[in-house]
């Protein structure tokens, strides 16, 4: 449908409506701030619109959109980390601190602690954890999006769970 110029807008609108919430929460879990998520989500759909005609359907549309959104979020975090050529910034620490003052965060103490534990994970591990635990995706789907083997993803997820449990016990 999106290769037909007369129906492209309609098709694009359907795509946005279908995937907007899932992609929003996928990005939001990575960058925490609502405003940043809103910007990144727009970039994701803009890139999708630009590449829609060349989309080869070798992968599912959903997988392709997820890959764009993931790259947007990771690029954003990396830029934030190395901004102005200054020494590496502890972005996860900043995100963790911003949770308490975030007007769009409505969790109790346990959830705040849990979210802080998740934010302590390395970027890629956090990504895997979010996709498996919160989004309940299959390892095969995650593998297609991240280009990582299922075995490596399983190991990464279990490491993440161990770290979070340890953090929650110790704290």
């Amino acid at each position: 449908m999106f290769r037909d110029p007369t129906r492209k807008n309609y098709a694009f609108n359907l795509i946005i409506r279908k995937y907007q919430e899932r992609l929003y929460w996928h990005i939001r879990k990575m960058v925490v701030s609502h405003d940043d998520t809103d910007d990144l989500l727009q970039n994701t759909f803009l890139k999708a619109l630009e590449g829609l005609e060349s989309f080869r359907e070798e992968s599912q549309l959903f997988t392709w959109l997820y890959r764009i959104a993931t790259n947007e979020a990771l690029t954003f975090l990396r830029k934030k980390r190395t901004r102005f050529m200054l020494p590496l910034v502890d972005v996860e620490g900043q995100l963790s601190n911003s949770l308490e003052s975030d007007v769009y965060f409505n969790g109790d103490d346990m959830q705040l602690k849990f979210q802080k534990a998740v934010l302590k994970l390395p970027e890629k591990q956090r990504l895997v954890f979010n996709m498996k635990y919160f989004e309940e995706m299959k390892y095969e789907e995650i593998s297609e999006i991240l280009g990582t083997s299922v075995g490596a993803l399983k190991a990464s997820y279990h490491h993440a769970v161990d770290k979070i449990e340890k953090f929650l016990k110790d704290d």
Binding site: N9, F12, N13, I16, R17, Q20, E21, Y24, W25, R28, K29, V32, H34, L41, Q42, F45, L46, L49, Y104, F105, N106, G107, D108, M110, Q111, L112, F114, Q115, Y133, F134, V161, I164, E165, L168, K169
Partner: peptide, 29 residues
Amino acid sequence: MLNDELKRNPFQVPENYFDLLATRIQSNC
């Protein structure tokens, strides 16, 4: 230890955010 209660999404969005999102994204894009 990671129970289902922790899966509840503690993040929120501004009111009607998703209702207007598609139109806004499409016009911006």
